[in-house]
Simulated assay, not measured.
Amino acid sequence: MTEQSSFTNLQINSEQLAPLATLQLEPLARSYRLLRQGVNAAVFTLLLLMVVLLWWQPWWALPANVLQLVEHALWLLPLVGLLRALFCWQADKCKHFALREHDISYSSGIFFRNIITQPVVRVQHIELKQGPLERKAGLARLQLFSAGGALHTFEIPGLLLAQAQQIRQFVLQHKDALQDEQQ
């Protein structure tokens, strides 16, 4: 005969809980920030080049309102590109993750901090994704899907490929082990 465990629902004093600040968060790969800066620079350089070509094109005269818009774009595009580069650099420095025995967390946000924690046992599946630039830089993204959800719970970008593979393997192995323990 097997012993059945009785259900308990003991109250926990919130003052006894470990503060979230004790969570040891790891930063994303530095090459991720550099890659994002490179993509940002390439996009804004291409846009600026298109505006300059429109400005210098000799084939047709531009209407006055379009000419004025092009003049504004010549100084506005570099300014917006620089502001976006600064914002992305700071935002990427605020992205962290933590892997613990029973859960995985992701933190992001400059002004509004967002920390998402997913219990490993609730992970339905986990995907490792790489775009062409990420593949070239040796980076990957992990998408975690929780049980009962159609969309991914959260995504951890900017992981080194080997690190992403190790985390994925850890989650898959421990997910099954934790489910077996609960049964």
Rank of each mutant, 00 (worst) to 15 (best):
Y32N: 03
A18Q: 11
L46S: 15
P19A: 04
A42D: 11
L151V: 06
H72K: 07
G109L: 01
T45M: 15
Q90F: 08
A162Q: 06
V66W: 15
P119R: 12
F44Y: 15
L178A: 02
L77S: 03
A137K: 12
H102Y: 12
Y32P: 01
Q183G: 04
L74S: 01
V66N: 14
A61W: 14
F97V: 00
A73P: 01
A73R: 01
W55C: 00
E134Q: 14
L20S: 04
W75H: 11
V51L: 15
L28I: 06
L161T: 04
M1N: 04
T8P: 05
G149R: 14
H152F: 10
A137G: 06
W60S: 05
V70T: 09
G158H: 02
P78M: 11
A21L: 04
L46I: 13
H102G: 00
Q4D: 00
Q173W: 07
L86N: 10
R141L: 09
V39E: 15
C88E: 14
S146A: 14
R122S: 01
K95C: 00
E101L: 06
T22I: 02
L76H: 09
L160A: 13
G81H: 11
Q183C: 00
G138V: 05
S31N: 14
W60H: 11
E3D: 07
A21E: 11
A147N: 10
L67W: 13
K129G: 02
K93A: 00
G38R: 10
K136W: 15
L128G: 01
R33S: 08
Q118A: 09
A150R: 11
V66K: 14
Q37S: 12
Q130L: 06
S107C: 05
A137L: 07
H72G: 13
P157H: 08
F111G: 02
A91D: 13
I12E: 04
H152M: 04
A41P: 03
Q166W: 06
Q183I: 04
P132K: 03
L79P: 09
R135W: 10
H125S: 01
L82C: 14
F44T: 02
N9C: 09
M1A: 08
V66T: 15
T8V: 10
E3S: 09
L62R: 15
H72L: 08
W59P: 02
Q165G: 10
L79V: 14
Q90H: 09
H72W: 10
I12L: 12
V43E: 11
L172V: 09
L49T: 13
P78E: 12
I104G: 02
Q182I: 05
Q166E: 12
